[in-house]
């Protein structure tokens, strides 16, 4: 109950973002109870019913194998959450550690940030493609690759912020109080990075969806039989004129989720900071 109240307080006056949050919760719940919701087995092939129009019993229609598009969408939510959380974790842990340590220890930073620079010289998708071609198509590898792609930007952002924080007077004050490297990094610097990290997480979560969809679309992401929104787009793209709903539903799901995550991220950025007291009116 207290958590609910807190969430409502955070989202006070930001109705659109609240709808976004609601949507994300819905996706999460759907992902959790996917087996209960899906009326059909998402892998079950039924050639007789291929390319059925949306209706009863196939709410979103069926694809060219006759698999139920609604069931695949429901399981796709599961994939979306797994890919999102996984990539965010990889990106934040790798990028966070690299960025913070690079800024804190100058010499290490000179070396690590050059590596990051080189990786960032590649366009995100190209880097993901290169890494993916070296690895096998699997869920874990997709997560690792997307995570590493966004770890570079995370490292850059946290590097800059840590560098700035390091110059803050309260860091000097903490040093004078006797704090060592660990205390400075984890008690003084890290908590002040929470809001940029949260914002970054929300954007990575959103972009990971797009990136995963793009990789799936190019046939380099998840194995094709796995029900993900990206795979659904990729598999059915040639039927865009005959059965547009096969693209509209997963496409809409991707857009809604990405948009919602961005809205929620904005609110988090504004509210997580205890210094930020005045409410900004609007969404």
């Amino acid at each position: 109950m207290i958590i609910m109240q807190r969430v409502l307080w955070i989202f006070k006056g930001r109705r659109l973002a609240l709808i976004g949050l609601f949507w994300l919760c819905l996706v999460a719940v759907v992902a959790l109870i996917a087996p209960l919701l899906a009326p059909f087995d998402p892998f079950e092939i039924n050639p007789i019913m291929r390319l059925s129009e949306p209706g009863i019993p196939y709410l979103f229609g069926t694809d060219h194998f006759g698999r139920d598009s609604f069931s695949r969408s429901v399981y796709g939510a599961r994939m979306a959450i797994i890919i999102g959380l996984g990539s965010v974790s990889v990106a934040l842990i790798v990028g966070g550690v690299v960025g913070m340590l690079s800024a804190y220890f100058n010499r290490l930073g000179h070396f690590l940030m050059r590596v990051v620079d080189v990786l960032m010289a590649f366009p995100a998708l190209l880097l993901a493609l290169v890494l993916m071609t070296l690895l096998e198509r699997s869920v874990t590898n997709t997560i690792i690759v997307i995570g590493i792609v966004y770890a570079t930007t995370t490292a850059r952002i946290l590097f800059g912020m840590t560098l700035k924080l390091k110059e803050e007077v309260f860091i000097d004050a903490a040093k004078c109080a006797g704090a060592g490297h660990g205390a400075l990094l984890f008690r003084h610097i890290l908590p002040n990075l929470i809001s940029p990290i949260l914002v970054q997480a929300s954007f990575i979560f959103a972009f990971a969806q797009l990136q995963a969809a793009a990789l799936d679309f190019l046939g380099l992401g998840l194995p094709p039989e796995i029900p993900s929104w990206g795979n659904m787009l990729s598999e059915e793209r040639i039927y865009v004129t005959r059965a547009p709903w096969l693209l509209i539903f997963p496409g809409a799901l991707i857009i809604l989720s990405v948009f919602s995550m961005n809205l929620v991220g904005d609110v988090l950025r504004d509210k997580v900071d205890p210094r930020f007291k005045l409410d900004i009116k609007g969404i």
């Binding site: 007077v169 309260f170 004050a173 903490a174 109080a177 006797g178 704090a179 002040n192």
Partner: peptide
């Protein structure tokens, strides 16, 4: 020990006063 000029900058905004004041005690 040192007292700094700007009291808005010398206290970590994310830490409760008790945490900030505990730090020197535990460090030493």
């Amino acid at each position: 020990q040192m007292i700094f000029q700007d009291p808005y900058a010398s206290l970590n905004p994310r830490l409760k006063i008790v945490t900030t004041l505990s730090e020197p005690l535990f460090c030493h």
